[in-house]
Computed example of a mutant assay.
Amino acid sequence: MKKGVLLVNLGSPDSPEPKDVKKYLDEFLMDERVIDVPYWARTLLVRGIILNTRPKASAKAYKKIWWEEGSPLIVLSEQLQQKVQESVDFPVGLAMRYGSMSIKKGLQELADKGVDTVFLIPLYPQFAMATTETILVLAEEIRQEHFPNMTIENLPAFYNNPDYIDVLSNSISKHLEGKKYEHLLFSYHGVPERHIRKSDITKSHCKIDGSCCETPSPAHEFCYRHQCKEVTRLVAEKLNFAPGTYSSSFQSRLGFDPWLQPYTDRTIERLGKEGVKNMAIVTPAFVSDCLETLEEIAMEGEEIFHEMGGKDFTTIPCLNTETPWVNLLVKWINNWAQAETATVQH
């Protein structure tokens, strides 16, 4: 048995040019777990409407944040992979759910190194249909079709893992040192409300009202909304934040259906209108900085805040390649490897 690891992140266009952005958006938005409507309706919406208008605007946004070495998300993910690889004794691969660094390529590279037991790590703290689930489903389809002798195990959502909360809290604390701020906003990637209901294994718990996320339920294992709120609660508890000095919101909505609220842009607007002069914002649905954190939050968010009379807008980076985060991934990988070895020996 030869072990290997595959880190999987979201993905990125090959370049910030409209043609590459269009190709990437087509793959991303045609995923039935991202836009979960019947195929004909998805095709009409994505290929008939969105892809005729959005690629140009998205390309413009990508150009604002693109690094010399390439897409920030890809560059940071590759740096993370290299750092993890330096600390473990078996191959560590990297793949993206969308784009040219495909999961099939990632698994093939590991298979070429003789790997037959893979620890797949979706780089998302919280479970969501449009992130973790789509990665796991696709990886299993690829395994069955192309790598039938390979075993794949995955790291479950780690949003409430005490070690992760420690790493995240310490990172936030470090980046806020010496900064003046009256309010810290935890901004999570948005999803349509129906995704929450679809992921509800009890079929009755998730009402998206004021109390379901706080009421214990088996549904929470797959409830993105609960898991986001829980990250905020655990970090606030860890850092002893006073009530009223922090809150949660959701960014990046698309289309006309109700998405998780409150919305980040409107929350920033409201805080500015209410007279908050100094605010900070953190994005714990991502572990690597990307378009949504570098452009939508750090640029657009700041602009909204200043327009509303705000003064200092502090953006806290994602965990990216911070040593405590790398060390935590290494710890999880080594724990898995030891458990695997023990299982085989027994």
Score class of each variant (00 low, 15 high):
residue 95 A to V: 08
residue 164 Y to H: 00
residue 124 Y to L: 05
residue 150 M to F: 10
residue 195 H to F: 06
residue 131 T to F: 05
residue 67 W to Y: 10
residue 110 L to N: 06
residue 100 S to C: 02
residue 129 M to I: 13
residue 174 K to A: 14
residue 74 I to G: 06
residue 109 E to F: 10
residue 67 W to H: 09
residue 181 Y to T: 05
residue 92 V to Y: 05
residue 93 G to A: 15
residue 178 G to R: 01
residue 156 P to F: 10
residue 172 I to F: 11
residue 188 Y to W: 09
residue 135 I to K: 05
residue 79 Q to T: 10
residue 56 K to Y: 14
residue 167 V to P: 03
residue 56 K to H: 11
residue 145 E to K: 15
residue 139 A to K: 06
residue 139 A to F: 04
residue 76 L to R: 12
residue 65 I to E: 02
residue 115 V to Y: 08
residue 132 T to L: 07
residue 141 E to T: 12
residue 82 Q to I: 02
residue 124 Y to A: 02
residue 114 G to W: 07
residue 128 A to R: 06
residue 72 P to T: 09
residue 101 M to K: 13
residue 161 N to R: 00
residue 153 E to D: 13
residue 83 K to M: 11
residue 60 K to L: 12
residue 113 K to N: 11
residue 175 H to S: 08
residue 79 Q to G: 14
residue 76 L to D: 05
residue 187 S to G: 02
residue 52 N to P: 01
residue 62 Y to G: 02
residue 106 G to K: 12
residue 52 N to I: 01
residue 179 K to V: 01
residue 99 G to F: 13
residue 80 L to F: 13
residue 104 K to Y: 09
residue 61 A to H: 15
residue 85 Q to P: 06
residue 121 I to H: 03
residue 105 K to H: 11
residue 86 E to H: 13
residue 173 S to C: 10
residue 106 G to A: 13
residue 94 L to D: 05
residue 94 L to Q: 07
residue 137 V to N: 05
residue 170 N to L: 09
residue 171 S to M: 10
residue 169 S to Y: 03
residue 180 K to W: 00
residue 86 E to R: 14
residue 61 A to L: 03
residue 147 F to N: 10
residue 59 A to P: 01
residue 52 N to A: 02
residue 193 E to A: 11
residue 64 K to E: 13
